[in-house]
Amino acid sequence: MRYHPDIHHRRSIRLKDYDYSQAGAYFITICTKNRECLFGSIVNGEMLLSAWGVIVKNEWLRTSIIRPNIVVDEFVLMPNHLHGILVIVDTDCRGTLQRAPTVERFGKPTSNSIPTIVRLFKSTATKQINELRKTPGEPLWQRNYYERIIRNERELERIRKYVINDPLKWSLDIEDPERQKDYQNTAEYFKRMFEE
């Protein structure tokens, strides 16, 4: 089917005009393409990583190594998605790369913004996994991802608890292929979950 802008449009869940490179905490959820369970399995409430899952976990952790102003907070890798909290720390000791403009200009990515971090993470993990499974160019992730700006300490603690306990609740998780029919979309679910 050919692309038609009136039918095939994606509604962005991002806040209009919000600077996603500013200091703060962000809750990120990234799903595999078609929610395929590639990263391991849940056994007795514990995530057992596949070789591909190990690659994804290592790349997520590398985020704070290659970006000194990013802190990887709580995260969990599930069979077909990753939940993680990224914290952008406001610091004056940033390198040249971190001094890039914070407003996207002419549709170009902004250095160290949440969209750029997620895009590069997905790209690097995909390349490594495709080399391992000998499927060059094969998509690994859904086109987009879910993110939420964490607004206060109470919400941060609630999200941390959710992330930590996610493997224990896999049979109830909306990303479990057995449960997906129960929810229209991930954004609606998380909006309800984190409303105060």
Results as ranks from 00 to 15, higher is better:
171 S>F: 13
126 T>L: 15
149 I>W: 00
140 L>E: 05
179 R>G: 05
82 L>F: 12
23 A>C: 05
24 G>I: 00
164 I>S: 04
190 F>K: 02
89 V>A: 01
10 R>T: 08
120 L>C: 09
100 A>E: 05
152 N>C: 07
95 G>K: 11
167 P>S: 11
46 E>Q: 15
1 M>C: 02
33 K>G: 04
185 N>A: 08
106 F>L: 13
125 A>H: 08
37 C>Y: 02
49 L>A: 12
16 K>N: 11
61 L>H: 14
162 Y>K: 06
121 F>W: 14
110 T>Y: 05
80 N>R: 03
152 N>H: 13
165 N>T: 10
22 Q>S: 14
42 I>S: 09
35 R>T: 10
94 R>W: 07
130 N>A: 13
1 M>G: 11
96 T>P: 07
134 K>P: 03
36 E>W: 08
113 S>Q: 07
142 Q>F: 10
128 Q>R: 15
64 S>G: 07
104 E>C: 14
23 A>R: 08
41 S>I: 11
172 L>N: 12
122 K>D: 01
158 R>S: 13
6 D>L: 13
187 A>V: 10
160 R>Q: 03
165 N>G: 03
129 I>Y: 04
48 L>F: 14
28 I>D: 00
42 I>T: 13
124 T>P: 01
196 E>P: 11
92 D>G: 09
180 Q>E: 02
66 I>Q: 07
88 I>Y: 00
54 V>C: 14
118 V>W: 04
67 R>G: 00
76 V>N: 03
152 N>Q: 09
67 R>D: 02
78 M>R: 06
29 T>E: 00
115 P>Q: 08
154 R>T: 15
134 K>G: 10
78 M>S: 05
177 P>N: 08
25 A>S: 10
184 Q>N: 12
145 Y>A: 01
60 W>K: 05
98 Q>N: 04
120 L>V: 07
92 D>W: 11
42 I>N: 05
110 T>H: 04
174 I>M: 06
39 F>L: 12
161 K>L: 14
38 L>R: 15
175 E>N: 11
96 T>Y: 14
11 R>H: 05
27 F>P: 00
155 E>F: 09
47 M>P: 09
82 L>Q: 06
89 V>R: 02
57 K>N: 09
170 W>L: 02
145 Y>S: 01
133 R>Q: 15
182 D>W: 01
55 I>Q: 13
54 V>G: 12
112 N>K: 09
14 R>H: 03
135 T>A: 15
27 F>K: 01
102 T>R: 08
153 E>C: 07
133 R>G: 10
81 H>K: 03
43 V>T: 15
9 H>K: 14
60 W>G: 05
107 G>W: 09
109 P>C: 06
52 W>M: 11
186 T>L: 12
21 S>K: 02
159 I>W: 04
179 R>Y: 02
156 L>H: 07
75 F>I: 05
177 P>T: 03
53 G>M: 05
2 R>Y: 09
31 C>A: 12
147 E>A: 00
118 V>D: 00
79 P>G: 04
97 L>R: 15
101 P>F: 11
118 V>S: 04
132 L>D: 15
187 A>F: 04
12 S>R: 10
88 I>H: 00
188 E>A: 15
111 S>C: 11
5 P>G: 02
139 P>M: 07
1 M>D: 06
21 S>I: 03
30 I>Q: 01
28 I>L: 09
50 S>I: 11
158 R>L: 12
5 P>W: 00
82 L>P: 03
62 R>M: 14
